[in-house]
Design a protein around this nucleic acid. Structure first.
Length: 216
DNA sequence: GACCAGGCACATC
DNA sequence: GATGTGCATGGT
């Protein structure tokens, strides 16, 4: 039985308002941000993206042509810079060689084909793939992350560990398949995670105590 | 100085 | 399948 996720969403929305989330001037910038933000604070990612922009490197051909070691130096503030440089290169190779470097062309691919393709890129896991799908390619896909697990757990929506696909399937089953809803919901969960449901033992006074929802 | 932050791949049991 | 480890920076 699916919990009343929609009610939970509505109460978050009422509390925090629309988030209009995931800054990025272009779909490519959003995709780059999705890879850079892996296990990393967004502040650090923003620094790295600014540096790429200032260097005039935030385009598919430019990133594709750049040697990994050189790219690594530009994105250093985002942490894991050698790993992420290679992951960016892998994604750019996929985009350039498969779709002529065009995010618009990539977005035209049916979701059932697109998600497995993204997951096949070394360095793109479920959360990164779904973030790219939802925010860069505007596909209605629910993004699960550490916040989702923690908040749903704390507020009694789930009990015990949930694998990524299982939690995503639950959300898909419980919510209307709506792009903006999914974008806002994930953004609201991140906001909630930052302001309220902190990692133990730092969750003292929960301003969302009134949001308790029972059932699973 | 420890802990945290929009994860992922790979090795091992 | 579950669990452990390396990757690295910058803010609190």
């Amino acid at each position: 039985m699916a919990p009343d996720l929609f009610a939970f969403y509505e109460r978050l929305f009422k509390h925090f308002g629309p988030q209009g989330w995931w800054p990025g001037d272009t779909p490519l910038e959003v995709a780059v941000g999705a890879i850079l933000t892996q296990n990393t604070n967004w502040q650090n990612v923003a620094l790295a993206i600014t540096r790429l922009k200032q260097a005039g490197l935030l385009s598919a051909p430019a990133l594709y042509a750049l040697p990994p070691a050189e790219l690594a130096e530009h994105i250093r503030p985002a942490g894991y810079f050698r790993v992420k440089a290679q992951r960016l290169k892998n994604f750019l190779a996929y985009l350039m060689e498969g779709y002529g470097g065009s995010m618009r062309q990539l977005a035209a691919v049916p979701l059932a084909q697109l998600r497995p393709e993204l997951l096949a890129v070394n360095g793109i896991g479920p959360e990164t793939a779904d973030s790219i799908l939802l925010y860069a390619l505007e596909k209605p896909v629910f993004v699960v992350d550490a916040y989702t697990h923690r908040i749903f757990s704390r507020h009694g929506l789930i009990a015990g560990p949930y694998a990524y696909d299982r939690l995503q399937a639950m959300c898909h089953a419980a919510l209307p398949r709506d792009l903006v809803l999914f974008q806002e919901f994930h953004a609201l969960l991140v906001r909630t995670g930052k302001e309220c449901c902190r990692p133990r033992p730092r969750c003292h006074t929960c301003p969302l105590a009134a949001l308790e929802v029972t059932g699973i």
